[in-house]
Amino acid sequence: MVEGLKKNSSTSVLGQPCIGVLALQGDFAEHINMLKLIGISALEVRKVQQLNDIDGLIIPGGESTTIVKLLHMFDLVETLRNRVESGMALWGTCAGMIVIARELADPYPIPLNFIDINVARNYFGRQVDSFEAEVNIQGIDGDPMRAVFIRAPIVQSTGAGVETLAVVPEKSDGTPAQTVAVRKGRVLATSFHPELTQDTRLHSLFVSMAEECRSESTNRNVDE
């Protein structure tokens, strides 16, 4: 745990995209472990300068109110917005999905509007209503993924160009099917926590999104 902040520069190996995980609060260590399983050494991001070193950022599970607050407290929002607008890949899981949504069904917190979705927090209820389910995800081949929903949000509506990647089927208690994974361009959002499982397929998908960003910026540098 102690080494986190001592690494000031990117730890990316030449040719690999550099992935950062927002480490203000939440289960960022689990995302870093998942990336390690697929050979990527990721950066814990706590400071604004670090946002310029990365090709992709994961906003982990945690408390969305806390994460939004800390993003503002430490002045990360503007740079993050610039980076996302210039093509950096972005993935929010659970709280991360709430943070990057356009709009929430709840009054609080104010999301950052990086993807045109309307999200309802704690949709399934309180902690005692948390659950797991098998979910088929568009673009992920093979078996369905085991999705862990913890006080999870859902996507209530999507704007133009936002692709629905997964829905959780109707539950036995009658809760109707809900959208739980969406993507637009290089922005990905999931209601659930692949980082709490051993299934790295979504992390691999995200790395390929960050690779696009990296090769684009390399080409740009060559053009200049």
Partner: peptide, 20 residues
């Protein structure tokens, strides 16, 4: 066991509180 929901879901909330 990781494939059983209950335990992972309970411990999972604590994972989300980390760094907090």
């Amino acid at each position: 066991r990781p494939e059983v929901g209950d335990w992972r879901v309970k411990g999972g909330l604590a994972q989300m509180l980390k760094g907090g």
